[in-house]
Write a protein that binds this DNA or RNA. Structure first.
Lengths: 349, 349
DNA sequence: TTGTATGCGTTATCAT
DNA sequence: ATGATAACGCATACAA
């Protein structure tokens, strides 16, 4: 049994509500309010539901009664006849990845102003866990936001079939999504690197199932040659600090002088590992991260990175989900290259 | 595997569900399952609810029927008669504060294994916003966890009166809570500083309404004199990087050679501001943070800090909440001093 | 404008 | 062991 109130005597006496078995008071219902105000329950429902349609005095009386009794609607009970729970779900791959801080905040705030509460779940970078999370959350919510889902198109389409779905940084036919346009930031980064004499760069790639990873690599593949630069993909084991550290061997083998990473975590991991082995950044190696998470500016040198407006992304996803904005009209958020100190002139050969 | 097939025509024909107005299919209910299995709805409810009490063959048949139809219980409908929603709430002060990453993860996982889903809300360091968050979430959940709440004892007691409540890092009479014992880590840090010749240290304090801030300061006040060290409190404007930066002026004025901060954010803010003004850390100033958040090891020098087992804390809070562990038996998690490079010998006078 | 009656999907209390 | 039936709290179509 969970912890219950310390002493229920006083409370019970004061507000005259039948106590439940747990010792906590039973909730006040519209029936209580109705009796207190001398009207019928349905009138109470109306007065509280949509404050427009009745005599102002009556409405006022009911509101007073409700306030006096401390009435609060029971979301579950309301959800049954209406089918709407006023709850939205957000599923991210990894709680501890700082990218999601601002995204979650943006989503939660947008949901809040829309009168909805957020339920959060984590998919731990695995398709199966993601599927479980979706199944657990789905019956509870009016709609679902999946951030960078790892499920395949088919699975996502199946989900979209019976629950409103918005994807972040993933595009699937006939499913609403909110994406960032990585081209601006990426080309700015490439220009910056080229101006510093880097002719050959490496892309530290992200999860194979990640759509946005493929997207980033694709744009690089388009834009680098256009600038007369070579670009190679360098695999990482996971999109974390450890993944970045592990990649150093392959980075050195590749012989590139500059890198763009799938995310800041990988970039920072590599940065630190490089320094640990005596390399100078940016003297020997220039590194560009992605996202501009908390921590990117804390390293020495500060991490040059491509900033993604995460908060705006989370907010936009909710807006699309609740229909406040048409997915068609929603235009991709722009990315921006943030120059710090982890990038500099290429070492002389 | 998803319960519905990608191809809606086949599925619609095969399972004969009436489509809703939105175009999405109506949910399968126990009535559908009952008809399909040739039994009554109440039997289905029992078979699925508590797999013990009926003929194994019947039970099996019902489960098959449910699976075939893709039945999933409706949490809202279930919550009505039972009063239990299988949902737990967690309210933190600030989503973007890295301290909460692990805490949220720990809580979410513990909730998950208990078959509950988490709803998350943010109170933005304000008592009023916290109160709103509580009110919004409360009717939805079976229990609530408040991390470092800013509300006063009275308000919290009132909340505890009609919803199960567990506090993290806050102690209020007759309310269950989960706290860390800061003494171990703090004394280790003090010993470390004294061994390096620091005789006078400053405490960069946190929010005035924060119980854990008072607690940290109190222990410092006890333990520093015991070691023949002076200790002064230095106010900060907010428990963030900016708060740490702003405090530098007062730190220099205070003339201390070492600092312990309320949290890592403040410590890092101060560290960077000190460096920006030409000070050497730890040469001129030794700095100890608190929590060991992501980012603490990324600075140069790496931040010495007092590690708090956040994940375990979040998990413990949920365990207490769902009654898996008695609040009395729950013993405070221990803190540990993590020595990095932001602390060193006091400058010669 | 306000009240009456019914249903939402489940669990629980009865009979059987 | 299984089936009928009554809540649970709210919204709503309909009657007044």
């Amino acid at each position: 049994m969970g912890p219950v109130s310390a002493d229920s005597d006083k409370a019970a006496k004061k507000t005259d509500k039948r106590p439940t078995a747990t010792g906590r008071r039973a909730a006040v219902t519209i029936y209580d309010v109705a009796r207190h105000a001398g009207v019928s329950p349905s009138t109470v429902s109306r007065a509280l539901g949509k404050p427009g349609r009745m005599s102002a005095r009556m409405e006022r009386r009911i509101q007073d009664a409700a306030a006096e009794l401390g009435y609060r609607v029971n979301p579950m009970a309301r959800a049954l006849p209406t089918g709407r729970t006023h709850t939205l779900g957000l599923i991210v791959t990894d709680f501890t990845n700082p990218v999601y801080f601002d995204l979650v905040r943006g989503a939660e705030r947008a949901a809040g102003v829309a009168g909805c509460t957020m339920v959060l779940a984590e998919s731990q970078e695995s398709g199966e866990a993601e599927s479980n999370a979706v199944e657990r959350v789905r019956p509870l919510v009016d709609g679902l936001v999946l951030a960078a889902p790892r499920l395949d198109d088919e699975a996502l389409t199946a989900i979209a079939q019976d629950t409103s779905l918005v994807l972040i940084n993933r595009v699937v036919p006939d499913i609403a999504s909110v994406v960032v346009d990585v081209r601006d930031g990426l080309t700015a980064a490439l220009d910056h690197l080229r101006a510093h004499g880097h002719g050959s760069i490496g892309y530290l790639s992200g999860p194979a199932r990640s759509w946005i990873n493929a997207r980033r690599w694709e744009v690089l593949l388009e834009e680098a040659p256009r600038r007369g630069m070579h670009v190679v993909e360098i695999q990482t084991s996971e999109p974390t600090l450890a993944g970045g550290r592990d990649a150093l061997r392959r980075v050195r083998a590749a012989g590139v002088s500059a890198l763009v990473a799938y995310n800041d975590l990988i970039a920072i991991g590599l940065l630190r590992e490089a320094q640990a082995t005596g390399l100078n950044v940016p003297g020997d190696l220039s590194i560009v991260g992605f996202d501009d998470i908390f921590g990117a500016e804390l390293t020495t040198p500060g991490l040059s990175t491509i900033r993604v407006p995460l908060g705006a992304l989370g907010e936009a996803a909710i807006h699309v989900l609740i229909g406040r904005v048409n997915p068609e009209e929603h235009e991709p958020a722009k990315t921006e290259f943030v120059r710090r100190q982890s990038t500099g002139p290429a070492a002389a050969r």
